[in-house]
Amino acid sequence: MPVPRSLKRLALRALLPREDYVRVMRATFGDAGHGYDPLGLSAEDFAFAMALAFPFYAHYFRVRSYGAEHIPKRGPAIVAANHSGMLPVDGVMLAVDIARKTRPTRIPRTVGDVFIPFMPWVGTAFSRAGVVSGSRGNFRHLLESGELLLVFPEGTPGISKGFQKRYQLQEFRVGHAELALRHRAPVVPTAVIGAEESWAQIGRVEGLGAFGAPFLPVPLTPLPLPARFHLHYGEPIALHEIFDPEDSEDPSVVVKAARIVQTAVEKLVQRGLSERAGVFV
C-alpha cells in the first residue's frame, strides 16, 4: 500500500536534515517520466526511507565513515562491502552514508537477493528505495546507465553466518567482478565494522521457505544493540586496468578479479577493527 504523502512529508520534516532532503531530491537518476526509474526507484521514496533510517544512522549506531571521497562522483561504479548483522542494517547505513557524503549526491542502488521481490511490502518498499534484485540484466542495465551499485559479494552466507564467525569473510561471489570488468566500472572496496556485534545471530530456522527466503534467523537480542558503525571506503580498484575487459568471459580471470576485491575488503576490515576503540564507543 503506498504511504500517504502527508505521512511522508511529516517524516521527512521531522527526521531528515533539510539539506539532505534537498540534495537527494536534486540527485539525478533515470526518471522514466512519472518520478520513478524503470526498476522502481523514486527519489522521494528514497528520501523517505532515508528519513526513517536517519535516527538510527545518526543517534543509535552513530555512524562514522572514512574515505567517502573514494566513491566516484559520476559514471558506473560498484561499492563492494562485507555483509553481516542478520538483517541488512549494514546496507541501510551504507546507503544513507553514501547519499549524504557524495557530492553531487548519488543514490546508491543496493543489489539484493533474488527472493526480495517475492516478499509483500518489503519487495515494494525496497524497490522504491533503490534496491534491485541481483539478476545479471538488472546489474547490466544499471552499469550501462552510469549508476552507483552497492553490492555485498558474500551474499546471504555473509549475513547468515553465526556470531562466532564475525568478520570472517565468506567466499565472494564473482558476478560483480565480471560485470565491473566488462563495463569498466571501478570497484570501491568497503568495510562495515560494528554490524556484526549489533545484532548477533545465534541460530536459524530452515525449511520454511516463506516468500523464497532461505531461512528465518534467530537473534541473540530482540532488537539490534547500539554498536557504533564504522564505514571504511578504500581506494577504487580499476579491474579493467589489471585485466583485459575482453577476458570478462573467462571464469578464471573473473575469479582472480573477485579475489582482488575480497583481499582489499579483508584488509579494510582488519584496519577498521584495529582502529576502533571499542564496540560501543
Binding site: 524503470p38 526498476l39 522502481g40 533474488v114 521481490p117 517475492f118 519487495g123 534491485v132 534484485s133 539478476s135 545479471r136 540484466g137 538488472n138 547490466r140 542495465h141
Partner: peptide, 9 residues
C-alpha cells in the same frame, strides 16, 4: 519472473 531482470530484452 522476478528472478530475471526487470528490464525485458
Amino acid at each position: 519472473d522476478p528472478r530475471q531482470s526487470v528490464l525485458i530484452t
